[in-house]
Write a protein that binds this DNA or RNA. Structure first.
Lengths: 230, 230
DNA sequence: CCTCAATAGTGTAGTTTGAACACTATATAG
DNA sequence: CTATATAGTGTTCAAACTACACTATTGAGG
């Protein structure tokens, strides 16, 4: 089957940077390409946009197809567009313009499963990445920057999104790890606790962790509304 | 001449929101469409991306072609990508994905000239816009939000860009107008002067305006490096 | 030349926000 | 019972932001 146009059309793909925090380090989901170009190389999960689907929809579909991250696992999680990348020559096959997305998944919930087109799917520590296919190193760097921007000194309207790294019920220490990992800076415990309680409404679940060889920690849940920026 | 592909390909366009500040009000450059669809409707200047040109390059070419804003006039001015817009059905002809850009031009320098495909090209006050073609109202709203974000309480790395609204030599009152127009909030004069001098290095040109029926104002130029965020 | 109108220019005090800093508490393992 | 590992808690100082009112200089017009 062939598709014919009066003018040349570029191909359009999506690619998604799926971030998580594993053992206190920022990780990204990558797939090993099972087909040329860049066969055997690691890449962001993504693929061609369907003609009837929205860009974000296509990105989610590809996540399921290539990395086994189902729409179910993504439901309720933030999904941001990073931007379009369209330098001529970024794909050796033909002109391909890709629209990149960013998502944040909880530290404890998502397992990757390779499938269509992907030989493997794995989590990589962000500061220990393999060589990436296409211009994905570029895209990933911009995704990382967008992640940082979410929690830069004045909080963006989307700052709540970073709580997606946490399980539904979390301790303040876990929350601190998330903010430290994203900003890359160590935070002072007492200041952090004051600050997070000033900016978010945290519901004290009146429960404690258990099992650790140490004092149990109080569990919280992100409450109704973010308090305010500033 | 026809172009044939194994898979259907969407068309890709660019659209640019060109902002300026005219008589203390934020304005946008729009063109009146001279051809269907949406003939006679106002729209952001833009058009199809060439197969060998980068996205931003294509956007600038279209600005020249449709609105008479030459690469020359744009040189040195910021040019930011807002994002890709690709809802199926946003263009009645075929699937069209557009990549939107944002630029800021000086209050005193750019005249619009309609040409290719555009019946007219004009500046419109942002808060007095006509109905727009396609999803351009949407795109424009996101461009406006990006403009605000440039100068939100903690300054983005790109905050210098707002000086592009000013002539090379400007008074502090003009600068205040720019920041007030972007944020939509009235600023207190003494505080603003302290603040801008704390965040930017302004070179005092040791010159004064003249001709006004009032005290002359000192002229400044944006100095070398931005001081720092915070 | 005097007055008016219009914009330029300047400093201080109060409040809020962010940064630095050290010790006590409680669970488990051995 | 002891050792170890993490949880939890307040105060003080510095910096940044807010509010606030008067004098200065020019051109126009009478």
């Amino acid at each position: 089957m062939a598709y014919t146009y009066d003018y040349p059309h570029p191909a359009v793909t999506t690619d998604t940077a799926v971030f998580s925090i594993i053992e206190g380090r920022l990780h990204v989901a990558l797939i090993e390409r099972g087909a040329p170009p860049f066969k055997g190389c690691w890449a962001l999960p993504g693929g061609f946009v369907g003609m009837e689907e929205d860009l974000a929809e296509g990105a989610r579909r590809e996540l399921a197809e290539e990395a086994g991250v189902t729409p179910d696992q993504l439901s309720g999680l933030p999904f941001f567009q990073i931007g379009a990348f369209g330098a001529p020559g970024r794909d050796p096959r033909e002109r391909v313009i890709t629209v990149a997305f960013l998502t944040l998944v909880p530290m404890d919930r998502v397992t990757l499963v390779a499938s269509t087109d992907a030989a493997r799917a794995e989590w990589f520590a962000y500061d220990d990445l393999p060589a990436l296919a296409f211009d994905h190193a570029d895209i990933l760097a911009q995704a990382r920057a967008a992640l940082s921007r979410l929690v830069s000194t004045d909080l963006s309207a989307d700052a709540d999104a970073v709580f997606s790294f946490l399980p539904e019920e979390f301790t303040l220490s876990q929350a601190q790890t998330v903010f430290e990992t994203i900003t890359g800076a160590a935070l002072e415990k007492r200041n952090f606790r004051k600050w997070i309680k000033a900016h978010w409404e945290l519901e004290d679940l009146q429960k404690k962790t258990s099992g650790g060889r140490h004092r149990p920690a109080a569990l919280f849940r992100l409450g109704g509304a973010r308090r305010q920026a500033g």
